Amino acid sequence: METRRTKLGADHPDTLRSIANLASTYWNQGRWDEAEELYIPVMETRRTKLGADHPDTLSSIANLAAAYRNQGRWDEAEELYIQVMETRRTKLGADHPDTLSSIANLAVTYWNQGRWDKAEELEVQVMETRRTKLGADHPDTLSSIANLAATYWNQGRWDEAEELEVQVTETRRTKLGADHPDTLSSMDSLAVTYWSQGRATEALKLMEECVIVRTHKLGTNHPDTLSCRAILLEWQAGESEIGGSVDKDQVV
Rank of each mutant, 00 (worst) to 15 (best):
M1L: 14
L8G: 09
D14W: 05
D14Y: 12
L16T: 02
S18W: 03
S18T: 06
L22Y: 11
Y26I: 00
W27N: 08
Q29M: 04
Q29A: 01
W32V: 08
A35Y: 07
A35N: 00
E36P: 03
Y39E: 10
Y39K: 09
I40A: 07
V42L: 05
V42P: 01
E44P: 02
K49M: 15
G51Y: 08
H54K: 09
P55C: 07
D56L: 13
L58S: 06
I61S: 05
A66T: 12
R69Y: 06
A77V: 04
A77T: 02
L80Y: 09
L92W: 12
G93A: 11
G93L: 03
D98V: 03
D98N: 12
T99H: 10
T99F: 07
S102K: 01
S102W: 02
I103F: 02
I103D: 04
V108C: 02
Y110D: 08
A119V: 05
L122Q: 01
L122P: 08
E123S: 11
E123Y: 14
M127F: 05
T132W: 03
L134W: 03
G135R: 06
D137L: 04
H138K: 09
D140Y: 05
N147M: 00
N147Q: 03
L148N: 03
A149M: 09
A150D: 01
T151Y: 04
T151V: 13
Y152A: 03
W153H: 14
N154C: 01
N154E: 03
Q155W: 01
L164C: 06
V166K: 04
E170C: 04
R172E: 10
A178M: 08
P181I: 13
D182Q: 11
S185F: 00
S186N: 09
S186Q: 07
V192D: 08
T193H: 09
T193W: 13
S196V: 02
G198E: 12
G198I: 14
R199C: 05
A200E: 14
E202K: 15
K205H: 10
M207G: 01
M207D: 14
M207N: 15
E209C: 10
V213Y: 13
T215N: 15
K217P: 06
L218R: 07
S227E: 13
C228H: 12
L233D: 15
E234R: 15
V246G: 09
K248L: 14
D249L: 14
Q250M: 15
